[in-house]
Design a protein around this nucleic acid. Structure first.
Lengths: 295, 295
DNA sequence: CTTTATTCATATCATAAGGATTTCTTTGGT
DNA sequence: ACCAAAGAAATCCTTATGATATGAATAAAG
């Protein structure tokens, strides 16, 4: 059973002639005869009544005609619906990211990508790096922006942004000129971000300075910590990224000594097919790297 | 573009595997690979994302999936609709009916229709009117014989048989000459048929006589009630139809007063194409009406 | 002792070549 | 104007082969 057979049948029924139907389909007349014959055999019903030089649908043919027209129409609709996807006008990119990178980095990149590809459908899922990377491997995400290192055999990681960690204090607090070191910070009330790679690198940095991290409080939200520090409840070590924009009038910020950076990586599956939308998003992210955080 | 290609695509998308889809279609895996590839080339869109050893639909594929499913369904409908036309004489009529009408009315009609059209394939489904009519609307039945009234916007109802309800008593019981009325029957042990339109009209008849129906027992089978009454366990009100033939030597039957009839209707979908087989069956049913129940 | 690489076997999809089937055209009737 | 038969063309399937990812087992490191 074939689309061509159905199409030919419709043509024959409408035109009342095998020859005319053949012409319309750019075929020879015997080909159409055969198609109709096969269709009739397949369905076990006579579809076209051949009377003299006229061809008329039987009652069965008449009924099939409505079905055939619908099927052909459906097929045309299906093809039609693929047009936006073709030529990469439409697309979907599912991004996974940490909260900080999402708030301060992705909006720029997303708006850039959308500007170049308005039909693009972008969704973002916030989560910790482990979950995000698992989803990426399961292909329920297309792209991840997480703090490195990112393990995973099937993943391809590209460092694209260096984010300097800053000591943060309430406005007016005394800040060492060269920047605070582990020993200095260990004497302060420390509010730190719980879990994740960032937390781990802070721990390593402290222990490299001979100090064991003993935070006064831990919080799951960088934004919350900023508010608490601004309210004078203590110090913190936060990604410079999160201090770019606001709250500078209530906060004292300074790079720590020795310098400590976290590297953000773009992660995709190694065997991922790069759609145009995905390429646009990655390009936009790389450009965001080129434009370092403004004061 | 092929039905097989669409079918394979649907299978791959649903199973998430080329190999499994191939197995289901009794093909080899490369055949399915090729089908998907051709489909993708034809539409100019990537439909299945091959990632690792998994296969899942792209957004475009997801959209095509709904169309493909519809097309395949339409095709099945088309084939299905040709079955009644097959080989001219033969055909299929699926009848739905209540149990009483089935036992005492349909055999005659069916045998008449079969006599005129030996190749006709007739199936009967017994059920309550609600289920039967729902199936009729869903086109999984072609014809229904149920007690009226039958609601349903898309249904066409034709009354074709009047069935008088009779009071039934054990042989030798005293029966009022003019027939028993509600007041008389309310003093007897009543066994009634549970549910359905017949039950409802009995209730209405009783309350019209100022009596509330208080059955001693209820049963789902008219035949069972007949046996129980014959055994002397009580009285009942039953369709005259069910008393036509047998048990007259163990039962006393008499029309109730005032007269109470239930109307049986032939129901078909309004837009139903009347095949020859269906016409024959309906004609046979109408003739059965013309021949009223013999004593 | 748990966690992290490495290795090997296995399962899956892609590709290529050969062959079988289908389908079309040509030619000659009815 | 349609049907039938035979050869030609195209399509489609299968077998064989290769590439890649996955999972388990093993080795190495913190």
């Amino acid at each position: 059973m074939n689309f061509d057979q159905l199409q030919s049948f419709v043509h024959v029924a409408e035109l009342g002639s095998f020859t005319a139907a053949a012409e319309m389909a750019a075929l020879t007349q015997p080909a159409v005869s055969l198609q109709i014959k096969l269709l009739e055999q397949r369905l076990g019903v006579r579809l076209i009544e051949r009377v003299g030089r006229r061809a008329q649908p039987t009652p069965a043919g008449l009924e099939l005609l409505t079905h055939a027209r619908r099927i052909i129409q459906e097929l045309a609709d299906a093809e039609e619906s693929m047009v936006p996807h073709r030529s990469g006008v439409a697309g979907r990119v599912r991004i996974g990211s940490g909260a900080t990178a999402f708030i301060h980095l992705l909006p720029l990149a997303i708006s850039k990508a959308k500007a170049r590809m308005p039909g693009l459908d972008i969704t973002v899922r916030i989560g910790n790096a482990g979950d995000i990377l698992r989803d990426l491997e399961a292909n329920s995400l297309d792209l991840a922006v997480v703090t490195m290192p990112a393990s995973g055999r099937s993943l391809e990681v590209e460092a694209f942004y260096e984010d300097e960690l800053m000591a943060v204090a309430p406005k007016g607090a005394e800040m060492p000129a060269a920047g605070p070191d582990p020993a200095f910070l260990s004497k302060k009330t420390l509010l730190v971000y719980e879990g994740g790679n960032t937390r781990r690198s802070i721990e390593e940095w402290m222990s490299a300075g001979g100090i064991r991290l003993k935070p006064a409080m831990e919080f799951g939200s960088v934004e919350a910590i900023k508010e608490l520090v601004a309210a004078g409840l203590g110090w913190s070590i936060l990604p410079g990224l999160s201090l770019k924009r606001d709250r500078t009038d209530f906060l004292e910020a300074c790079p720590v000594r020795p310098k400590l950076v976290r590297r953000l990586g773009i992660v995709v599956r190694r065997d991922k097919h790069l759609t145009r939308g995905l390429r646009e998003v990655i390009k936009a992210l790389r450009e965001t790297k080129a434009a370092p955080p403004s004061p």
